[in-house]
Design a protein around this nucleic acid. Structure first.
Lengths: 179, 179
DNA sequence: ATCTGTTATTCACAAAGTGAGTATTCACAC
DNA sequence: GTGTGAATACTCACTTTGTGAATAACAGAT
């Protein structure tokens, strides 16, 4: 099955391109340095994603010839791309499983770009988590203790509760701290 | 990439077959009833897995003709299959992400089969989680606060801490309670 | 008449990303 | 001198796990 979008990869690339135009190879190196320990991304994947982004009009490219080396293809983010990135950035992640990498990536870009509004993002994410938590608690309560489904629901509940705690720490760190 | 095994599906089927021989259609219905709200499993997937299990000698089948309906193929677990299932059952899950479904499945089967040794499983799982937690804490500490990698490591740490709490609840519920 | 359930099987397809292969030229090591 | 690796770009076959539809054949319900 799917359902999962490869949103975060696209958005991460846009997030770097918003800082300055770059070519694919460079982009890949930057991503490796900044996010790489936790978020591996193959070179071919970067090139493929850039191609798609260009077809969608979210980035545009220009060739910059070099003596001796293959010409660089410098990618620049378009206004459309910038809008799409900022929209993504301020929107809480839709699924709990995206909290692990995609949400921290948002926090990272808020800081890297010096943007305002982290507090709102965190609040919205908290609200989304709390809603999910309530729904799961309701589902859980329909099963007896030690029932398999209940175990899984309770497991997920405890994970979300921990996330809510972690989000409070994030707020302390990201809202109104030193830059 | 993968790395993920489809272990749990195989083992779940074995776990039901250890209770009594069944045909695929029936097995599918049972799984749906018992685990289905949380763990969806297509019919074709069940048949495919049974076929593989048979090739590997972990189950064997016998046809049981019916008037009018297609003949049932009754699967029975073999000693090899039983050994493989029990081994799996007592082994803690190797990755944290398997805690969500695979581990509760183990608890479920301990109870459904009336087996001893849940306490040991839970202890081993706690130990595995604690080890993972320490490794992650060490990795986390190599990054400054608000660094992306650190955020993700800390996130994972908080998830594992919550799991350790959840495991304590599991122990209370599953060890030495009424059957 | 048609649909749904029983029972079994097969297969094309999906998604997402990896890794290898292809190109080219320079720099550096041995 | 020759090989290796870095810089730069691109393509593509393949992996994995599983879904959903198609196919078959017949019973009983509506």
């Amino acid at each position: 099955m799917g359902g999962r979008q490869r949103l975060p990869l696209e958005q991460a690339l846009l997030g770097f391109l918003i800082q300055r135009p770059m070519h694919g190879y460079d982009l890949h190196r930057r991503v490796q340095e900044e996010l790489g320990e936790v978020w591996y991304m193959g070179l071919s994947n970067v090139y493929g994603t850039l191609k798609r982004l260009e077809e969608e009009g979210r980035v545009e490219s220009a060739l910059s010839p070099q003596e001796s080396r293959p010409p660089r293809k410098i990618y620049r983010i378009t206004p459309t791309g910038e809008r799409s990135f900022l929209e993504w950035l301020h929107r809480p992640v839709p699924a709990i499983r995206d909290m692990r990498v995609e949400f921290p990536a948002k926090l990272y870009f808020f800081r890297a770009l010096g943007l305002e509004g982290v507090g709102e993002l965190i609040s919205a994410q908290e609200a989304a988590c709390r809603e999910r938590l309530e729904r799961l608690e309701r589902k859980s309560s329909r099963h007896g203790p030690r029932d398999f489904n209940r175990l899984v629901f309770d497991f997920r509940c405890c994970q979300i509760e921990a996330i809510l705690g972690w989000l409070r720490v994030c707020r302390e760190q990201f809202v109104g701290g030193e830059p």
